[in-house]
Amino acid sequence: MKYALLVTGHPTQSKACHSALAFAKCIHAHPEHELLGIFFYEESVAVANCFANPPRDEYNLLAQWEDFHKTATCPLYICIAAGIRRGILNEAESKRHELDGQNCSNSFQLEGLGTWVELNSQADKVVQFR
C-alpha cells in the first residue's frame, strides 16, 4: 500500500512529529508498503529548524528525522508558504526574501502545496498527524 503522511502539529507543542516519525519508520521496515513522501504543514514546519537546539541530554527530534532521511528514500517536504510565514528558510528562499541566514535542515526540501496535492492523489492511504 502507498502511504502519504501529512504532519501539522508543532514539534514541541504536540507529539505529531514524533508519531509521524515512528509511523514512517514502521512503513519503511515493511517492504510491502511504500511511503511516497511526508509533507509538513502548519506548525509542524518548525521541525526543520536547525537553529533549534534542545539541551544535549534531551531527545533531538530534528537529528532523528535527519537520520531517518539518510536511510529512507522518501522525500521530506516543508510547505514553502507555511515555512516562510514562520521563518523556515533555505538558501534560495533566504536570498529571494533578501534575508541573512538560512535555517532549514538540508534533509528537508521546501515545496508548494501542489506537491501535497500530488501525494494526496497518488497515495492509497493518507495519514495526518496533528
Binding site: 504543514y41 508558504a81 508548494g112 502545496l113 501542489g114 501535497w116 496535492v117 494526496n120 492523489s121
Partner: peptide, 11 residues
C-alpha cells in the same frame, strides 16, 4: 489555502 489548491488542481 489547502482547499483552494486542491480545487485549483481539479481535485
Amino acid at each position: 489555502d489547502l482547499a483552494l489548491v486542491l480545487g485549483t488542481f481539479e481535485q
